[in-house]
Design a protein around this nucleic acid. Sequence first.
DNA 1: TGTCCATGTTGCCGATGTCCACATCATGTG
DNA 2: CACATGATGTGGACATCGGCAACATGGACA
Lengths: 214, 214
Amino acid sequence: MDTPARKVDTVNMLEGPSAARRYHHGNLRAALIDTAVDQARAGGADAVVLRDAARRTGVSHNAAYRHFADRDDLLAEVSERGMAELEQRMRDRLADLPQDDNGEPASARLRAVGREYVRFALAEPGLFTTAFACARPEDGAPGEGPYGVLSTVLDELVATGVLPAERRPGADVTCWAAVHGFAVLCLQGPLGELAEREREAQLDGLLERLSRGL
Amino acid sequence: MDTPARKVDTVNMLEGPSAARRYHHGNLRAALIDTAVDQARAGGADAVVLRDAARRTGVSHNAAYRHFADRDDLLAEVSERGMAELEQRMRDRLADLPQDDNGEPASARLRAVGREYVRFALAEPGLFTTAFACARPEDGAPGEGPYGVLSTVLDELVATGVLPAERRPGADVTCWAAVHGFAVLCLQGPLGELAEREREAQLDGLLERLSRGL
DNA sequence: TGTCCATGTTGCCGATGTCCACATCATGTG
DNA sequence: CACATGATGTGGACATCGGCAACATGGACA
């Protein structure tokens, strides 16, 4: 938000404490991640450049190495942010929908979550791809992240009797794969040239087949 | 822009070792692509490095610029090779299966194609990701490539009466998205840590749900 | 034979990731 | 209250890479 108005190189000298103290404590790490997220938004993982991030943050390169082991470490942080934002959007979308006990809203919620997943991928392609391309291996928390949201909705389907309990195992992976694949193919595959209308129709078809096959 | 009548475009690399003393005719372009494909196999698109490719091919860097506009151009060539190899594997797999007129083999062929798709992605992750990450926009030939193979099999399903004709439109996108998403999630998502046995089971479940929902 | 163009080479530039030595600042201990 | 100490930021240096430019060479064709 606040642009680094003083990009003077000789800040190390005695200066007004209000200006120079800014990045000298605490917030550099967060500021660098913010900048890196912006870079990822603009151009994907390849656009996340350590030196440029430091420059834009108003700090010398190498300052980043006090907070991140290397570039991959920063990328992993961006990935976590991306995942969190995706999850939040899905949760927000769910919060807009009624959660009754009958089956109809339950499957509507599943479709809405899937649609929101794709919508996020298309709205934030750089952040989306970075989120998945640079995820840390240990970030596979079972109930967390976008996967957790999907699992919750599928559990609702079982609770409302729409989905037989014996078919619940594996349903999450199938749903996730279908929706994720559609998003990826839209971003980098031949589905990228689809007009929005056609894309929406294809997504509708996918979601319908998906629920039918669950 | 102006391509002045390339004389020796095709390769004469099977000319014997005597002709391979110098790269002064014909095969440099193909040799560079070969090396780049090896790089992609080993480490994905990021591992495709122009200078290193030229070095390994026994040629100075910048020699590559006589055959490729820039790195992205080389990458696109690698992508085409990857797509071709994926398509070939799918076709080979299909050739092993009987193509009767009754429905059972038809859906078996669909499952086999999907399994082969994932198998290739897991066996050649670098080439697979490069194939999709660096595809040229104009390479969306409708009946060609892996997509064409899938379409053919789906047409068989219609011909054998397994799939109602009115449900044929869009079925290709759904199938492709599901299988592609599964592959991608295995490669870079949380599905990567699945044991092979579990992964196979999940893929079986996905294929089953997929056919059921078609 | 001699010219011309395709192909390959060396040189160079700017940018990047990463390591190293040094400067600075806050803090706690004598 | 001075001083050592660890955390944090700075500048310099190195290797590598993508890409442009000028130069060299060798074959094809007049």
